[in-house]
Write a protein that binds this DNA or RNA. Structure first.
Length: 117
DNA sequence: ATTCTGACGTGGG
DNA sequence: CCCCACGCCAGAA
């Protein structure tokens, strides 16, 4: 049934819809896809998205707004720079005003835009 | 084949 | 507040 390949693609479809200048979390994506306990797998999917420029992996942080994936980007601070380039403030590896910038796919995305197949 | 390590998150002590 | 165990499961060793 639900293979990894399939799951990764759902993650990507969802990630592509994160609005410019907003951020979400690994767990929020997992929950939205009906795999609430598989947040780690979302991290794996992001890790495997390096060759996919259309996937805004830098907009996915952990549930505290911490840039936990920063070491997987080229350059020391690329993840932070990408966020700042779209107006997201980052201080001490953490998104400032995380509460306001947080985008929850489950509550802000219309049902027909949530990948199911 | 088995072990180990995580771009995570929750719950319990 | 801190620390730990656990669910989850892909890849590397």
């Amino acid at each position: 049934m639900a293979g990894k390949q399939h799951f990764y693609e759902k993650v990507y479809e969802l990630a592509k819809q994160i609005p410019y200048g907003r951020v979400t979390s690994y767990g929020a994506i997992a929950r939205c896809l009906g795999a609430g306990r598989s947040a780690r797998m979302v991290g794996y999917a992001m890790n495997a998205s390096h060759n996919m420029p259309e996937i805004p992996a830098h907009r996915v942080v952990n549930r505290n707004g911490l840039l936990s994936g920063r070491h997987h980007f080229d350059g020391t601070n690329l993840m932070q720079q990408l966020l700042e380039s779209e107006g997201v403030e980052v201080k001490d590896h953490q998104v400032v005003h995380f509460d306001e910038l947080f985008w929850d796919p489950a509550s802000e995305l219309p049902d027909d835009a949530i990948p199911t197949h």
